[in-house]
């Protein structure tokens, strides 16, 4: 998927979930879009945060897997 088309796809997602969250009452709450966007992105933001926080360990794991372990410092005597 071309990332430049993301907003279009995003509007479709908003449309499909909105029936679960919204009524048709005419009431304007300018903060709703900001409130719900956070909940919609929560999973992605959380996952990215976990990956970022564990990035060192992940790199270490793959280095180990492919036999490129970090150089061990020479023993001190």
């Amino acid at each position: 998927m071309n990332i430049l088309h993301l907003p279009v796809s995003f509007a479709a997602i908003l449309s499909s979930i909105s029936t679960l969250l919204l009524t048709n009452e005419a009431y304007l709450d300018p903060g709703s879009g900001s409130y719900l966007l956070q909940l919609l992105l929560a999973g992605l933001l959380g996952s990215l945060f976990v990956v970022k926080a564990s990035w060192g360990k992940i790199k270490g794991f793959f280095r180990h897997l492919f036999g490129r372990g970090e150089e061990t410092p020479p023993d001190e005597e």
Partner: peptide
């Protein structure tokens, strides 16, 4: 998101 939810009650 702001444009979409404007005018809708959450």
């Amino acid at each position: 998101s702001q444009r979409y939810f404007a005018g809708k009650t959450v």
